[in-house]
Amino acid sequence: MDQPTADTLTQAPPPDAARQREALRRMLLIRRFEEAAEEAYMRGAIHGTMHLSIGQEASAVGACLDLETGDYITSTHRGHGHCIAKGADVARMFAEFFGRETGYCRGRGGSMHIADIAGGNLGANGIVGGGLPIATGAALAIRQQRRAAVVMCFFGDGAVNEGAFHEALNMAGLWKLPVIFVCENNKYGMSVSTERSMAVPRVAERARAYGMPGVRVDGNDLFAVHRAAGAAIARARAGGGPSLIEAETYRLRGHSRSDRNRYRSKEEIEHWRGLDPIPRLERAMRDAGVLDAAGIAALRAEVEAEIAAAIAFAEGSPVPDPGEVTRDVYEGGIAA
């Protein structure tokens, strides 16, 4: 069998000016959403925990930019960005985090289970690697139903060491299913670095074991992620089978709220702050004449207003009725 090569995944044309503007808008929306969620958490408006994706906006948006309405994504515990990148309404996301009835999961899921089934987001996941075989299964259903859709499966470097990764990619490769596996390699599975957890640290190389092309890209470069993802989406849609994309990125915040950052240095974090994907995209768009400083400022103001309105909507929404705690365990709510 011919082994597909990484070259297969470097040929997608760049997004046009309107798509670039939309990409930047979504990245800014993710950044401001995460910052506002963090602020709400700090003032006690959100309970539990959350995993922020600040610094990883380009991989979420770049991977989803060419997706269409009927396409699916599966996401991770660090899933707010994926959800927004797939087109979710940030007001219903905040409502979910605030534990309100108007949230995407009616306050039953919270940050780790944020989903938008109607919009094609099959869900974030509290289990590392949990979404991988689900993505393969959704792709199998697409094939059975003779639909043109694809599945974009997000996971982190930590998930690559789970057995579910192997089982899901093997079946997807074996059956040539329309699924794109996007590993957001942010260097750490909680506190343990990829050097300390992977015998072969280049995730993209593992694609060879599953008969699919694998490519490693700069995950903080929107254009690089889009180039690979766009090619993989087109390939999957045309019946060419799955692909593996390793997007090298970095989370600028800790793993979760409990993280004291004892396992990495300030210098390392500062180095990656210099590679922040949002200023990089803004610079590139300015340099190419796609968007000037005034245009960027207008976009930022637009996002700011959307976030403020979303939080107001969430705060004004009703909390769930405790009398309904067992509702929706089953269809019709029948408890045993």
Partner: peptide
């Protein structure tokens, strides 16, 4: 073989594939 599928020996993966297919409208 499209409707009676021999999976690899991969119980976790097969269960996940069934969950994903069910979520996407099939009846595994």
């Amino acid at each position: 073989e499209g409707r009676v599928i021999d999976t690899p020996i991969a119980e976790l993966g097969a269960a996940g594939v069934a969950v994903g297919a069910a979520l996407a409208g099939s009846r595994p």
